[in-house]
Design a protein around this nucleic acid. Structure first.
Length: 650
RNA sequence: GCCGACGUAGCUCAGCGGUAGAGCAACUGAUUCGUAAUCAGUAGGUCCUCGGUUCAAAUCCGAGCGUCGGCACCA
């Protein structure tokens, strides 16, 4: 005799166990029509589930935000049914709901191509129109395995075999089609609605393991209604417009070409942006007690063997041989071992700790061809790297310092929000388990001390230590790790770093590997996308254009240009024989943040018409005032904080 | 690296066995104009590369390289 409490605080009692559908009907016909699932004591379940104990029940309607995951999961089932009816012999595997949509992995030769989408979508719409009820069935394990094996569904059989013994095996039937699934599902395939679209195909390894066969994945997007679907497609189109690869070309920042795959050709404006960020970082590091160093590009492989990198990453390192000498040099893929060499050059005292060695370290890695992505994943890049040599007791304080530095830098650069992940020991690693226990505990405690909240990223640590990952998103929401903080007890051991402790004994320092931007290349890519190219004045490589309306103003425009340059602003004078409309359009398309428009009136009055990017209005100001205003705005945020400022140079 | 799609002028793209095209950009000329495209003209291409089929290949076939979307990888 269950007593069911509803969200409005009321309680309903039943003599017998009831299904969700019956409960909804008892409450009212409107709810019975609208409800597609329910939560029982917080757990999302089918409406057909039987409630047999006292519980809190809340109905989920198709308009609720949480219905999106159901719509997407159900859409994946509809896709699988459609595919199997159109392409007999195709095996099904898994098909979850994901952000913005769903996918389903099929085993089929040849793989699906986008040309297959129209018939599949048509079939899916027919299945939705048929409103096939989702029926949940509990099966006996061996029977389920036999059932799928007899159908030739070896992947499904394998999934069931690998499920823990305690797991209830449930199958969902929709019309004549049946799939292994944990559920829950909505009432019928009709609840999926029609606001879905197949997006793209992709190869994906079975169970995410590259040693397994590759399956054919179909991605789709699904929404509650057509309006949401269209809004999503519009958002994708807009994201394409702020793709850093496109903006890099439009703003003339950089290019890539086949002769130097994975390496960036920085153009004058792109390099200016790079230098602005680099100068800013250098000031911040100087102020934070780091000492900048510079270490070699080519280092004998023996050092990488000692550090353990050769064994783990040797195949991904660029090497060089010289004819006269019998040795192999490697282009450094990272800076850590080099920084340890500086540490170990002389006897170090505990008094020197924490010793913070920083380097804008140019690194090369032979990244797999498929991993390359614009300037965000490249083979030649520069890390804003630093290694903090410290005692175990200093880890907490250093973490707090680092978090403070990182947060203000991210905020200054336009990222007030960022995600933190805690990546713990990977399956293949260096160092004893006790060392890992200590390292992970130290990092966890440091996070607690620093007040850092994170999500766990299990098994994703570096091979020498656990790490925090600071994650930023690109224009279409893909996540990129930028900053990192890694606790390393292993490399100091391998490279024999020691210091003399207070008691006169030799001790091993701990190494904290840390980066904030990660690499300049990746960070600048994300920065460009974050601002959609409309960089704030202090970052914008070209800060203003001085544009003439008539050629009589040419001389005055040149004068304005000189005055801007004297104020430290990078401007371009546009005296082309074009209409002002065309000039406004051209500079706007290049995302130049300000325009100083001068016509006959301004030339006579010694004023400029200041127009900000995208603004409908302009403001006529005395030249000196307009320039002073822009120069103040062009002052980097750290210099603005540090008091009265004379130089506007970035 | 794996699966798929794609590679034609600086950019966006058309052409898909029979003499390489358009718009924008560039250049020249005219126009001097008040806040997102003034008009006219000129020039610009080993159709990614290499091989093959064919009387004939941008077009068909094969290999390679690269890009894009995923997967795997990411010290």
């Amino acid at each position: 005799m269950p007593a069911i409490r509803l969200p409005d605080g009321s309680t309903r009692r039943f003599e017998e166990p009831v299904t969700g559908a019956a409960l909804a009907a008892a409450i009212g016909p409107g709810l019975a029509r609208a409800a597609v699932a329910m939560t029982v004591s917080g757990k999302l379940v089918d409406l057909s589930s039987v409630i047999d104990a006292d519980s809190d029940v809340r109905f989920v309607t198709r308009d609720d935000p949480e219905a999106l995951a159901l719509i997407r999961h159900d859409a994946a089932h509809v896709l699988a049914e459609a595919v199997q009816s159109l392409y007999p012999g195709t095996q099904v595997t898994i098909g979850p709901a994901i952000e913005n949509g769903f996918y389903y992995d099929f085993a089929r030769e040849p793989p699906f191509s986008p040309e297959d989408f129209p018939p599949i979508e048509e079939k899916m719409r027919a299945i939705v129109a048929a409103k096939e009820p989702f029926d949940r069935e509990v099966w006996e394990r061996e029977k389920a395995i036999r059932f799928f094996e007899e159908k030739g569904e070896k992947y499904k059989a394998e999934i069931i075999r690998d499920l823990p013994e305690s797991e209830t095996i449930t199958l969902y039937r929709q019309g004549g089609w049946v799939d292994l699934c944990r559920g829950p599902h909505m009432r019928t395939t009709g609840d999926v609605g029609t606001a879905f679209k197949l997006m793209r195909t992709a190869g994906a390894y079975w169970r995410g393991d590259h040693r397994n066969p590759m399956l054919s994945r179909i991605y789709g997007t699904a929404w509650r209604n057509q309006k949401e679907l269209e809004a999503y497609l519009v958002m994708l189109a807009e994201a394409e417009r702020r793709d850093h690869r496109r903006l890099g070309r439009e703003m003339d920042l950089f290019h890539l070409q086949d002769e130097a795959v994975g390496s960036v050709f920085w153009h004058p404006l792109g390099w200016r942006l790079y230098r602005t960020v680099e100068s800013y970082m250098r000031r911040r590091l100087d102020a934070a007690g780091y000492q900048e160093v510079r270490t070699p590009q080519l280092v004998d492989r023996s050092l990488w063997e000692k550090s353990g990198h050769w064994e783990k990453f040797g195949a991904h390192m660029f090497t060089a041989q010289v004819e006269d000498e019998d040795r192999t040099l490697a282009l450094k893929p990272m800076n850590c071992p080099c920084h340890v060499q500086i540490f170990t050059q002389r006897v170090r005292s505990y008094r020197e700790l924490p010793l913070r060695l920083a380097e804008f370290g140019s690194c090369h890695r032979y990244e797999p061809s498929g991993a390359l992505h614009g300037i965000m994943r490249v083979r030649a890049f520069t890390q804003d790297d630093a290694h903090i040599f410290c005692t175990e007791e200093q880890i907490g304080a250093e973490t707090i310092r680092f978090m403070a530095l990182l947060s203000t830098i991210y905020r200054d650069l336009g990222f007030p929000e960022f995600a933190v992940k805690f990546a713990d020991r990977p399956p293949v690693r260096a160092g004893a388990d006790e060392t890992w226990d200590r390292a992970e505990a130290a990092l966890r405690e440091a996070c607690a001390e620093a007040g850092v909240t994170y999500v766990l990223n299990p098994g994703e640590g570096a091979f020498y230590g656990p790490k925090l990952e600071f994650v930023l998103k690109d224009a279409i929401g893909r996540e990129w790790q930028c900053g990192t903080l890694q606790v390393d007890f292993v490399l100091p051991e391998r490279l024999d770093a020691e210091y003399v402790a207070e008691d006169g004994r030799w001790r091993r320092p701990v190494m904290l590997h840390r980066a904030i931007l990660g690499s300049f290349e990746r960070f600048l890519g994300i920065l460009i996308e974050q601002y959609a190219g409309r960089l704030p004045l202090w970052l914008a490589p070209l800060q203003a254009a001085v544009a003439t309306i008539v050629s009589d103003a040419d001389a005055y425009a040149a004068e304005v240009g000189r005055a801007c340059a004297e104020a430290g602003l990078n401007v371009e004078v546009d005296s082309r024989n074009e209409k002002i409309n065309a000039k406004v359009r051209d500079w706007s398309l290049r995302h130049v943040p300000a325009m100083l428009v001068v016509g006959r009136r301004e030339a006579e009055a010694g004023t400029v018409a200041l127009r900000r990017l995208g603004a409908a209005e302009q403001e006529v100001l005395p030249m000196a005032e307009a320039i002073a205003r822009l120069a103040a705005e062009a002052t980097p945020p750290d210099l603005r904080r540090s008091g009265p400022q004379t130089s506007a140079c970035a």
